[in-house]
């Protein structure tokens, strides 16, 4: 099961472990806000390795979402973003995005099942499409709710529908935009574990944006700290925690605490006195 994304006909990549999925070089993004061109991101360079879980942290309003939208091919940029070796010039096949605002990201007039099938319907044969939906729903534990409407579910469940929708597309990369930001602490923790499980199942590369340092460290293989205006990469860190993580043991381990302290320290250093906001 572990190798399935590499055998997938849609994504058909033959990348080996360790090759990079994303190569970002000298990325600069300017957006118009209120008629004024504002540079949001300034010459970022980093790579995302195949099968890697990259956490991107930074204070609110730094442009983390902008970075993700650029990587999703949704906004114009200058510099270079290479996805699987070719220059990105629009939404690419094999990239899926999970938004923070699950209420507005799901189609309220479609059932859970039909929401999940959105990305594959019409592109795959009917039975394969059904199979993808069934599998994705099973992985996120929502098989029973296939015929419910999103608004009938709790926030955490709706977010799982969104994740299932992304998974059904069998993406090579999942981009997460603070997906658990508006959930309560309990739900958030259980979804974090679920995400780790799901990722192990699908072997998907993940880029995960959050402003919660604990979450970033707990989930990530590597962490990038974004700060400043315009934002630049201030700091990168490998997270050598084992793949078997759980809320209590991992979060109480000395290694976790050390990494957490280090990131907090960096954050305070680059962000000055506004650390409370973080």
């Amino acid at each position: 099961m572990g190798e399935r994304s590499r055998n997938d006909p849609v994504n058909g990549s033959l990348l080996g472990q360790g090759d990079s999925v994303f190569e970002v070089e000298d990325l600069t993004v300017s957006l118009q806000t209120g008629g004024v061109d504002r540079t949001i991101l300034s010459s970022l360079s980093f790579t995302v390795a195949n099968n890697e879980f990259l956490s991107v942290v930074g204070p609110s309003g730094t442009g983390k979402t902008t970075l993700l939208r650029a990587m999703a091919g949704l906004i114009p940029y200058s510099g270079s973003i290479k996805f699987r070796g070719s220059q990105l010039s629009g939404p690419a096949e094999g990239v899926a995005l999970v938004f923070q605002d699950y209420v507005n990201s799901l189609l309220r007039w479609r059932t859970v099942g039909r929401n999940v099938s959105l990305g594959v319907e019409g592109k795959l044969p009917r039975d394969e499409c059904d199979q993808r939906v069934t599998e994705a729903l099973e992985v996120v534990g929502l098989s029973k709710f296939k015929d419910s409407y999103p608004w009938e579910l709790s926030g955490g469940m709706q977010q799982r529908v969104q994740i299932a929708r992304a998974l059904a597309m069998n993406p090579q990369v999942l981009l997460f935009d603070e997906p658990f930001g508006s959930l309560d602490a309990m739900t958030r923790e259980s979804l974090q574990d679920e995400l780790l499980r799901v990722r192990a199942h699908y072997q998907t590369t993940c880029v995960f944006i959050t402003h919660d340092i604990d979450e970033a460290v707990y989930l990530g293989d590597r962490l990038v700290l974004l700060a400043g205006s315009p934002a630049t990469i201030k700091y990168q860190l490998d997270i050598p925690l084992s793949d078997e993580r759980n809320q209590i043991n991992t979060k109480e381990s000395n290694e976790f605490l050390r990494l957490r302290r280090e990131v907090h320290g960096e954050m305070r250093r680059v962000h000055g006195t506004n650390q409370d906001e973080v």
């Binding site: 999703a72 939404p91 995005l97 019409g122």
Partner: peptide, 21 residues
């Protein structure tokens, strides 16, 4: 919602599909 429009683009729907769906 802009989220829906973004999803339409990421899924790479055609313009007609985006309007219709």
């Amino acid at each position: 919602r802009s989220e829906l429009l973004d999803i339409g683009r990421i899924i790479r729907m055609s313009r007609v599909e985006r309007v219709w769906k």
